[in-house]
Structures are given as structure tokens and as C-alpha cells.
């Protein structure tokens, strides 16, 4: 436990020194508010850049507030996830490649502790950024569109967090398996794309597939209660994340460390 805290504190210190604690939340805020703002101001933007030809009538449909909040999620699921992967790819692989791992792992450090501490540190960083981003997005959606109840917002954030935890776990797993951080990122992105393809083909059979989290979250906003599919999907996502974490311990233990 003491070792765990030592490693995590060191990770947090690193996030301070390289300003991750500042710029990662800033990027997430930017991603979250981009779509709500541009959607709301679209008519004004169109007007100011020359607008539509004389006489054209262009009805911009009124979007319900939950859909606008989901736009924030979809930005995060693209660029946010990419940033998470890029910042996580070197967690283990980078330390091994550079040789720092040699100095750390000749100390009596338990490998599962080493991995879990780094895993949790990353998750804390990204979830903090995600929550701040979604708070700002919620504020603007309430201001510009319609009110979203706090509980709905909170459930959205909580359930979507599982997906981000899954992304971190997946990337960390590849980071223990492969030695090249760039390759880790490529394989992680590849896996996520593969999963989304599988999801779109078999979505009727795989209602609990992690990728369908956001569509279930949208259901939640429409119906006002948590659909059972959301519970199921969240459960599957958590199990997969924990499974990947244990798989990481296993691969790391078997690996030659130097």
C-alpha cells in the first residue's frame, strides 16, 4: 500500500511538472463545449460569413438538450479518447524503452502494484478532466438550450466514465505487452475501431457491448430512468477493464523486463 501511494504520488508530481493537470482539463473543456456552442450560434455564424443566398429558407431544427450533451460525449469519444491513448501509451512501454524501468524494478516493487498505481493515476487525471469538461458543457446546455436535471447529468458522467476506464485499461495492457509506445497507440486505436465495427454490425445481438454505452445513455435521458441495458453494458465494461488489468499483471510478470 505504501509502495502504491509512492508510485501514485510520483505520477501526480509528474503531471504537475509537465502541466498535464492544466492542459488535459483545458482540452476536455474545449472538446465538450465546442459542439453546444457551434450548434447554438450556427445561424449567426452562417450570417456573418456571408450567409445563405437571397431568399433561401433554412430551418435549423431545435435540438433537445440531451442530444446536445451527447454531442459533447461524441467529441470526447473521438478526440478525448485519442488524447487518453496518446498520454497512456508510454506508461509502461516508455519506461521500459528508455531504461528507467531498470532502476525502478530492481527495487523490491511488486509488479501488480506498479501497474495498478499507474493505472489509477491516469484514471484520476482523465476523469478529473472529463468531469470538469462535462460540467462546463452542462452549464452551457442549460444556458443555451434546455435544463438537464442534475441526476441525469451525473448518471451520464458516471456511466460514460466506465468507457474511459476501459480505454485506459486497454492501452495499459498493450503498454505492458509491447515495447514501442507508438505501436501501443496504433494497436489501441485499431482495437477500438475494430470494436466499433463489431458493434455496428452485431448491435442487435450485443446489447451489452461496451461501445453501445452512449446510445444507452441517450435512452436514459429520454426515459428518465436507467435502462437495464445500461446496467448490463456498464457491468461488461467494468469486467473487461478489470480483466485487462489482470492480464497486464500476467504479461508483465512473464516479460523480460530489460
Amino acid at each position: 500500500m505504501k509502495q502504491f501511494m509512492t508510485i501514485m504520488r510520483k505520477e501526480f508530481l509528474e503531471y504537475w511538472r509537465n502541466f498535464s493537470w492544466i492542459w488535459v482539463p483545458v482540452v476536455f473543456i474545449f472538446l465538450s463545449i465546442m459542439d453546444p456552442l457551434t450548434t447554438y450560434y450556427m445561424p449567426i455564424i452562417l450570417d456573418s460569413v456571408g450567409g445563405l443566398p437571397e431568399g433561401a429558407v433554412f430551418e435549423i431544427p431545435e435540438l433537445p438538450a440531451p442530444e446536445v450533451l451527447m454531442m459533447s460525449l461524441s467529441e470526447i469519444s473521438m478526440f478525448g479518447v485519442l488524447i487518453i491513448i496518446l498520454l497512456t501509451m508510454g506508461t509502461i512501454a516508455g519506461e521500459r524503452k528508455s531504461g528507467i524501468a531498470e532502476l525502478v524494478l530492481v527495487k523490491p516493487v511488486k509488479y501488480p502494484i506498479y501497474i495498478t498505481a499507474k493505472w489509477l493515476a491516469k484514471i484520476k487525471l482523465f476523469l478529473t478532466a472529463f468531469i470538469i469538461g462535462m460540467l462546463v458543457s452542462w452549464y452551457y446546455v442549460n444556458l443555451l438550450f434546455d435544463t438537464i436535471p442534475f441526476t441525469d447529468w451525473l448518471l451520464t458522467v458516471i456511466f460514460y466514465s466506465f468507457w474511459l476506464v476501459f480505454v485506459v485499461s486497454l492501452t495499459i495492457f498493450y503498454s505492458t505487452l509491447l515495447k514501442n509506445p507508438g505501436l501501443v497507440a496504433a494497436v489501441s486505436v485499431g482495437t477500438l475501431i475494430g470494436m466499433s465495427i463489431i458493434n455496428s454490425i452485431f448491435s442487435h445481438h450485443l446489447t451489452w457491448f461496451p461501445n453501445s454505452l452512449s446510445s444507452h445513455i441517450l435512452e436514459l435521458h429520454k426515459s428518465g430512468s436507467i435502462p437495464s441495458e445500461l446496467w448490463g453494458t456498464a457491468f461488461v465494461t467494468i469486467v473487461l477493464s478489470i480483466g485487462l488489468l489482470f492480464l497486464s499483471f500476467f504479461t508483465f510478470q512473464k516479460k523480460e523486463l530489460a
Binding site: E14, N18, G99, L103, K107, P108, V109
Partner: peptide, 25 residues
Amino acid sequence: YLPQYPVFHSWMTGKEFLVYVGQLA
């Protein structure tokens, strides 16, 4: 153990690194 080409976290100070690995031990 001292490897042939020791690599440290370059953003840490020497003392911080020693305290860090000391605590790991």
C-alpha cells in the same frame, strides 16, 4: 543495481529520485 547507462526521470531532482526509490525499497 546500477545499469551501464542509468536513465532517470529527467524532470525529478536527484534527491527526489533517491527518496522515491528509497520508498519503493
